[in-house]
């Protein structure tokens, strides 16, 4: 299981303000809190800083690196910002967020994945957009995996993101994702799956409930990575419990450790 802490993102109001004020201490506190809560990776995203994204990316990575050593997930649709973040993020196995089957993006991001030998989030979308139907989703995902493998990226480096769409718009959007994960995890046993959870509940009430339950359903289908708020103790508890229940936690050690550390609670 891989937990990517999502909080350092300039689309969040408090992070936006901290970046504007160059409040390193605040950013560092959020970084430390997430690691303490169990994040394996920290996502760094300053995509909203459209005019100085590269500069802010450098500052954020340097700032976070001063206090935590967990690997970073460098998050941007802009290859230049990715390059800056990767260059500064240091020795650990980094993660690139993200590549996709869009031709230009694939060609620009692939060299970075190879150069820094990173894990990579692979978004299930191509130049025609986010797939409309379940068959299209499977076809685009499969082709993207095939292309990445052909470029000498190993299955183990790939974190396929099936791109979750709002259930409120179409009540089949949830089950389509589960089917896609189930099918592809049988076809490519070594690849990983990752997703953000909040899209599923867009436009519906009690969103956290839907997010949590959908997370558990995804784990059952084969998902093994999530980009989430690790400070949400209830989602982290569910994650720890689901992971041990699905039989991937040797001797339930991870669960027991989490409980003892107070991270996993009923």
């Amino acid at each position: 299981m891989l937990v990517v802490g999502e909080l350092i993102n300039t689309s969040r109001k408090n992070i936006k303000e901290a970046v504007e004020a160059k409040n390193a201490e605040y950013i560092q506190q959020i970084a430390k809190d997430q690691v303490e809560a169990g994040a394996d990776y920290l996502d760094i995203n300053c995509g909203t800083r459209v005019y100085d994204e590269e500069e802010i990316m450098a500052w954020l990575v340097d700032t976070v690196r001063e206090v935590v050593q967990v690997p970073l997930c460098i998050d941007s649709p802009n290859p230049k910002a990715l390059a800056v973040g990767l260059e500064r993020a240091g020795d650990s196995t980094l993660m690139v967020n993200s590549i996709s089957a869009e031709k230009e993006r694939f060609e620009q991001v692939l060299p970075l994945v190879k150069k820094y030998n990173t894990k990579v989030v692979a978004l299930c979308m191509d130049d025609a957009g986010i797939p409309e139907t379940a068959e299209d989703r499977l076809r685009v995902s499969d082709q993207l995996i095939v292309d990445l493998l052909a470029a000498d990226i190993s299955q183990d480096q790939i974190y396929l993101d099936p791109l979750i769409k709002p259930l409120g718009v179409n009540n089949q959007f949830g089950v389509e994702v589960l089917d896609c994960v189930r099918t592809l995890s049988l076809r490519y046993p070594e690849i990983h799956f990752i997703c953000g959870l909040s899209n599923i509940s867009f436009g519906l009430p009690e969103r956290k409930l839907l997010n949590r339950v959908f997370m558990v359903m995804n784990i059952t289908a084969g998902m093994d990575g999530f980009i989430l708020d690790p400070l949400d103790q209830s989602i982290m508890s569910m994650l720890g419990a689901a992971w041990t229940l699905i039989g991937k936690d040797d001797y339930c050690m991870n669960y027991l450790k989490g409980v003892r550390a107070g991270r996993i609670k009923a």
């Binding site: 409120g168 718009v169 519906l204 009430p205």
Partner: peptide, 10 residues
Amino acid sequence: AGDMFVPEVM
């Protein structure tokens, strides 16, 4: 006002 939701509006 948050009293109705996307599927209901649809």
